[in-house]
């Protein structure tokens, strides 16, 4: 047996740790600089360690962009989309995966392709139609659009999972007199809970991170999401270094929180999604 010696093992570990550090370093630099005062920043540059905790920059930025409002908007939009898109995915996948309706392969292909359509091909008509419907610049318009877009992926994933659902359980429930709706709510949904959890988390984070459609649909300050508000500010090139830094940190923090809270669901979910 040829076993690599410890001498050979550690350089590999070191190289991978360095690579991993490179991935994380941008977050660290942002965090370090967000607590520096502008004077300190201009004197010592971005690489020095902070001398104290200077939080006025963050506080100023928070108030200036009304960050609380943006957080509420993002949470409201992403939360509603996660919930509604999961419900829609379950209904679709129930008909395709368990109901095995005729033409299900085509229906599924339709959802897959719809999922791949670039938003660029939908954005102007959606903008136009939402204006006609009086929904332009409302959070509701974004919720409706993303519920549908995300549920395309959900339908695709969940149909494959429900296709493997043990038929005996459903047959048994049917013999006991349960109708289709009862079977869905009392049996299929509880049994599929792990997959539904994955979908909820994914839809929430994906919607939180969306940029193009919210940028077009939500123009007023009061309705903007975190991503759009920060992206627009950056795009206008009006921010100085400390402001950009505060913006970066406030944008990064929610993502880190989601990451820490949902890490296991995320990695498990990606595996399920890719193989199915």
């Amino acid at each position: 047996m040829t076993r690599p010696t410890a001498l050979r093992r550690y350089p590999v570990l070191l190289a991978l740790c360095l690579a991993a550090l490179f991935m994380v370093v941008p977050f660290l630099i942002v965090a370090v600089n967000a607590v520096k005062s502008p004077a300190e920043y201009s004197q010592h540059g971005p690489l020095s360690l902070p001398h104290g905790l200077y939080l006025d920059g963050l506080k100023d930025f928070w108030q200036r962009v009304d960050f609380t409002r943006k957080l509420v908007n993002s949470t409201l939009i992403s939360g509603s989309v996660a919930l509604l898109a999961t419900v829609l995915s379950v209904l679709n996948a129930y008909a395709i995966g368990i109901g095995r309706i005729r033409g299900r392969t085509w229906v599924l292909a339709f959802f897959v392709l719809a999922n791949m359509l670039p938003q660029e091909a939908l954005v102007y008509p959606l903008y136009y139609l939402s204006k006609q419907a009086g929904l332009y610049d409302t959070r509701l318009s974004v919720i409706i659009v993303f519920t549908v877009i995300q549920s395309a992926f959900g339908t695709y994933l969940l149909s494959a999972v429900l296709g493997q659902f043990p038929r005996e359980i459903i047959e048994a429930a049917r013999i006991d007199g349960a109708n289709k709706w009862q079977i869905l709510v009392r049996i299929v949904v509880p049994v599929s809970r792990p997959t539904l959890g994955v979908l909820l988390v994914f839809f929430f984070i994906w919607t939180w991170n969306e940029f193009l459609l919210p940028l077009v649909m939500l123009i007023s300050n009061d309705n903007q999401t975190v991503s759009v508000a920060l992206g627009v500010l950056q795009g206008q090139r009006l921010m100085d270094a400390t402001m950009t830094n505060a913006a970066a940190l406030l944008g990064v923090l929610p993502a880190i929180v989601f990451f820490l809270v949902f890490q296991r669901t995320l990695t498990r979910g990606i595996a399920v999604g890719a193989v199915k």
Binding site: V24, F27, V226, S227, Q234, V252, F258
Partner: peptide, 26 residues
């Protein structure tokens, strides 16, 4: 987990982080 971290970041925020790191002065 370290390699995966950037994936959960909104791309707009990743853009802000990097344009700040890559700024020509300072």
């Amino acid at each position: 987990a370290c390699f995966y971290l950037p994936q959960v970041l909104p791309v707009a925020v990743a853009g802000i982080v990097w344009s700040w790191i890559l700024a020509p002065d300072n």
